[in-house]
Structures are given as structure tokens and as C-alpha cells.
Amino acid sequence: MRTIGFLIFCLLVAPPASAAYEWRTFPDEPDQLSLWQDGRQLGNWRISTREYLPLLAPGTWGDPCPPPYPPPQEVVAPAKIESDGTLNFGLDRARLSGAGKHLLNGREVRKEELLQALGPARLTDDSQWPSLTIIGPEAGRQKVLSDLQSSPLLAPWKDRLKVQDYAPDHWAVRDAGFVTTGQPTIYCQAPDGTVLHRQDEYRGPEALAEVLRQVDPLYKPEQDPDLNKGWAGISWPLLIGGAVVLFVLFGKDENR
């Protein structure tokens, strides 16, 4: 009886076992799983990057770290693991040749012949171009895009600027930390993504050109169009010289 009583006492005073961990899916976000325990969300697992982010507080995430409970195997490695550790997603490796080859119209050729057939590279290297992101209603975005194409003030950046425009509810900007309430919001970013400038309304091509002058490391002032250039833009020596030439040609009296 004492033994039975002792067991009952242990069951009564022992702390309750923790509820099992549970991975849950998001109906509108297939790239993430959330980890729950005892009705509390512990963190999220991002499938594409294979990273777990702990949820420290509502809206506050910690640095990537190993999850306290492993995600489902079919999510972590949705493939067959070969004997050498390779993840096989359906290839018949026995039919793969050890060396690569170059084909042109179904015919095996040398690498040099293939490159010659392809011709010179047609892709522009825009890796060092600044980015301009326009977020807002359709009419506001189109005004900026139109000026970028047609305004002489913005002509120096017509082919040296990566431009993207989005509606405020577009997935690319909606939950990515961008301000989406401008009319429109305009971001200018460095090639590495650093935000160099942001404005929440469009102030015209002149103001935008001034922003681009300041943030563009390849900006060349000597190529700026001078829309006011007329007689005032011509040097005095050139004006005087032109006047002398005109006088000699047309102002000289002819003997009759």
C-alpha cells in the first residue's frame, strides 16, 4: 500500500508534461512554417533558405539559429539521399556523363564554335546601377515613369537606372518593410540595397534629377542638358567674332 501511495503522490506533484511541438503551415505563405508549443508560437522556418528565426516578442525576430524541434523531413530534404550524401530530386545519375558537352542545333561542337554562334554578349551589366522603386497608385507611378522616359532633365539616367514600380498591395513590397502609403513613395537605393533617399510624393523631374545627381557615383555634370541655354549661354568672344564676320559679309558697301 505504501508503494501505491508513493506512486500516486509522485503523479500528483510531478510537473505536467509539456505539450508536443507542432509545425503549422501558412495558407498564404507556402515558403514558411511556424513552430508552436503550448499554444504559443516559438518561431518560423523559412523553407527556401533553410533558416529558423525565433520569435522573441510579437513582431520581433531573433537571429537565425537551430530550431528547438526539427522541421518535417519532407520539408528539409524533399529528396532521396544518395549513399554519398547527395540529395537526388529525381535524376537517373547512371545516365549522366562525367564530362559536359556543347550542342548547337543538336550537333556537338567545340566551346569556341558555340560562343561564336552566340555572338557578342547582349546583356548589359547593371550590377552597379542605382535602383529607383516607385510605390503607389497607378496614376502617380505612371507620371514618374513618363518623366523618366521623356524629360531632358532625367535623360542622363535613362539607361543607367534600374526602375521598378509596384502597387501598394504588391507582394514584393507589401510585407518587405517598404513604406507604401506615399503618393507615390519613391525609393532610391545603392547597388547593395542601402536606402539612399526616400520621398512620399513626386516633386517633379527637376527635384528627382537633383536626387539622382547626389546619389549616382557615375554622374557627370558636364553632360547635363541646359534648357535655358540660348544667347546667354554663348561666350562674349564668340558673339563678337560672329558679329565681325557678319559685318564683313553683309555690312560692307559695294562700289557702284
Rank of each mutant, 00 (worst) to 15 (best):
D125S: 13
D126W: 02
Q116F: 02
A121G: 11
D126Q: 14
L132T: 03
L114R: 07
D125Y: 10
T133A: 09
D125W: 06
R122S: 12
R141D: 10
L115I: 03
L115P: 00
E138N: 10
L118S: 00
W129F: 12
T124D: 11
T133Y: 07
R141H: 10
K143E: 15
Q128K: 14
L118N: 01
V144Y: 05
T133R: 12
Q116H: 13
G119S: 05
W129L: 02
R141F: 05
S131P: 10
I134D: 06
I135S: 03
S127L: 04
I134H: 05
S127K: 06
A139D: 13
T133H: 06
Q128D: 13
A139M: 13
G136W: 01
I134N: 02
Q116S: 12
R122M: 11
Q116V: 00
A121T: 13
L115E: 06
T124A: 14
K143T: 15
D126L: 08
S127C: 06
G136M: 07
L132P: 03
R141K: 15
A139H: 14
I135D: 00
A139G: 07
L132Q: 10
E138P: 07
I135Q: 01
W129G: 01
P130V: 05
L115G: 02
L118K: 09
Q128C: 02
L132H: 09
A121K: 04
D125N: 10
I135Y: 09
I134P: 04
Q128E: 14
P120C: 08
L115S: 09
P130M: 09
P120I: 12
T124P: 05
G136N: 04
K143G: 11
W129A: 03
L114W: 07
P120G: 02
G136K: 06
G119L: 01
D125R: 06
G136D: 05
V144M: 01
L123M: 14
R122E: 06
K143D: 12
L114Q: 05
L115K: 03
S131F: 15
D125V: 06
G119V: 07
Q116N: 14
G136Y: 01
S127N: 00
L118I: 00
L132A: 09
Q128T: 11
Q116E: 15
G140H: 07
R122I: 12
R122Q: 15
Q128F: 00
G136T: 01
L115T: 04
L115D: 13
L132F: 08
W129V: 00
P120F: 09
T124N: 07
A121W: 09
V144D: 04
D125I: 04
W129D: 01
G140S: 14
L118Q: 08
S127A: 09
A139Q: 14
R141M: 08
L118F: 07
S131L: 10
K143I: 14
A121R: 08
Q142Y: 13
V144K: 03
V144F: 08
D126Y: 07
P137Y: 01
S131T: 13
L114M: 12
Q116I: 02
G140F: 14
W129S: 01
I135E: 09
Q128L: 14
L114Y: 11
Q116K: 09
A117S: 09
S131N: 13
A121D: 15
A117Q: 09
A117H: 10
Q142E: 15
T133D: 07
S131D: 12
V144L: 05
I135A: 07
G119D: 02
A121F: 07
